[in-house]
Simulated assay, not measured.
Amino acid sequence: MRLILMGPPGAGKGTQAARVAARYDVPAISTGDIFRANVAAATPLGISAKAYMDAGEYVPDELTDALVRDRLSQPDCERGFLLDGYPRTTAQVTELDAILSDIGSRLDAVVVLEADQQQLVERLLNRAQVEGRSDDTEDVIRRRLEVYAQETAPLIDLYAARGLTEHVDGIGRVDDITDLINAAVDRRTSALDSDAMTG
């Protein structure tokens, strides 16, 4: 399976990405995790990304695109992958299309986690306290949600027009949300198998 997991900050993408990727035995690729690891290690990429992340802004496309292109070219992505946190802009959609074309691949589904904004703010503030995330102040959280609404939410319509989206409620018990995602992906798998047999 070649999946994208989309949704606003705090919708639980990281937790669900790990579970779904394990079920389908494909790597979960989180641009946020990769950037945070580089920030922690003070690599050149991390130093470049940190200023944007601390302000609640997106890391520039050229940095993110290069990271994703390199990651998807690795051997463990040949059987599939799950992208968490990419693409985030229309320009990144275009770049991802080019990357997939270059490696002879295509997307199977885009799973969209949906959640109420105020619940997300409360969830992220709680996570900041538990995990000690310096980038999760309330102002930064609200800015991240604004940036998501402006830059990333429009991508859902773009992928819906391609017939790729599956919507899942991201608020509730983690296990229940995982079950909903798995059911959505299974529906997509069945449809793909049917198309392959009739095609």
Rank of each mutant, 00 (worst) to 15 (best):
R2G: 09
I4N: 06
I4C: 09
L5H: 10
G7N: 03
G12R: 00
G12P: 14
A17L: 08
A18C: 03
Y24F: 15
V39K: 02
V39D: 04
A42I: 07
P44Q: 15
G46C: 14
S48E: 13
A49W: 00
G56Y: 04
P60M: 10
P60S: 10
T64Y: 05
T64H: 11
D65L: 03
R71M: 07
S73N: 09
D76K: 06
E78V: 08
R79T: 05
F81Y: 08
Y86C: 13
T90K: 03
T94H: 09
L96P: 01
L96H: 06
L96Q: 09
I99V: 05
L100H: 02
S101F: 13
S101A: 13
S101N: 11
S101C: 10
D102K: 07
I103G: 01
I103S: 05
S105W: 06
S105N: 10
S105L: 09
L107D: 07
A115Y: 00
L120C: 00
L124I: 06
N126R: 11
R127D: 03
R127Y: 10
Q129P: 06
V130D: 08
E131N: 12
R133L: 13
E138K: 13
V140W: 00
R144F: 02
E146S: 15
A149S: 07
Q150C: 09
T152D: 02
A153F: 08
L155T: 06
I156D: 11
Y159E: 02
A161Y: 12
A161P: 08
G163N: 00
D169I: 14
I171H: 12
A184G: 13
R187F: 11
R187C: 12
A191S: 11
D193E: 15
S194G: 12
D195Y: 04
